[in-house]
Computed example of a mutant assay.
Amino acid sequence: MTTVPAVSPAPSAAPAAGSPAEAAAPRRRRFPAWLAVVPLLAFTALSFGVPALAMLNGAFTAKDPSGGASHYTTANMTASLGGAYLTALTGSVKLSAVSAVIAAVLGLLLGQAVVTSRHQTLREAVLTASGVLANFGGVPLAFAFVATLGNAGVLTTHLHLADHGWSLYSFWGLVITYLYFLIPLMVLTVVPALDGLRAQWREAAQNNGATTFQYWRHVALPVLTPSLLGGFVLLFGSAFAAYATAAAMVGSSVPLVTLQIADAISGNVLIGQENVALALSLDMVLVAGLVMAVYLPLQRRSARWLD
């Protein structure tokens, strides 16, 4: 009995070019890649572009008290850069810069301690707490500090801080309050950069006779400079735009531009100063843009160490 080998069916031939089967197959349309970002651009234009244009238009617009007609003028910008408004703008810049510098230094030291720690549980606990504290602000933060370091606060009473000239409702009181959420924010910013420092770099520096100070000065800090600058800009912006904490804690005792904007809008001091408030907001945008203009060239120059 002989067995006939099974013959596999021949594969179907592909349709020839120009055949009816190929003509019936749907053609895939290729859209330009930039169409994928159109929703993001539209959202950005609506969220940031429209308010920016409204602020820019209002900053250079004034209404005639008698007829109510609007006309363009530079009086609002001139008023925002003089008198109490200029004092408030200068105070906000000073407060933000001092708070950002102190928080950047302390956040770097705390981040380095977390990265070099051998206990993974400690690292996770610090990063988790930093994520929570970085978003803790506003009226609850002001109330916590008033209850702790205010005139009748717990620590103020037990340590007799008032006898040594301590006052929470001052410039340095605001600095200490802002550090409560700025230092955790810096930790979250700098820890990924510290993780990028290679152990081989430290070993090579030690093999060449470099001290710890020389390693940080010539190797680690130049590499970390872009991240440190970015963290400083982020901290400066967070402190510069903070309002609720300062409003609930110091009121008008410390001149700040955000408090001046609120007073101008609500008419607490003068009535009809809404456009001056928009001019003050434009001043804040210009200050933030100036900080970014200084940061970007330094970031490009320092980023060469990472190439």
Rank of each mutant, 00 (worst) to 15 (best):
M186E: 12
N151L: 14
L174H: 01
F171P: 01
W172A: 08
V233L: 14
L149W: 00
Y169K: 15
H119R: 12
G165K: 03
G137K: 09
T121G: 09
T128P: 06
L221Y: 11
V146F: 08
Q206C: 09
T156M: 05
L235A: 13
A239C: 09
A204V: 10
L168H: 07
A210H: 08
H158F: 12
L141M: 06
G237N: 14
Y180V: 12
A134P: 01
L127R: 00
H218P: 04
L127F: 04
F236Q: 00
L168T: 11
A134L: 13
R123Y: 04
L161R: 01
V190S: 06
T156C: 06
E124W: 13
W201Q: 08
P226Q: 08
N151Q: 14
M186V: 11
G138L: 06
Q206L: 14
A199W: 07
A193R: 04
P226H: 04
A142I: 07
V191Q: 01
L185K: 01
T225C: 12
T157S: 15
L235V: 02
Y178M: 10
F143S: 06
V190F: 07
L155A: 05
I176F: 15
S167R: 14
R123A: 05
V126A: 09
W166F: 14
V126K: 03
F143G: 01
T148L: 14
A134R: 12
E203D: 13
V233M: 11
F171K: 02
V187E: 00
G138I: 06
S238F: 08
W201S: 08
H218W: 14
L127Y: 03
L235I: 03
S117V: 08
L149Y: 03
A162S: 15
G153E: 02
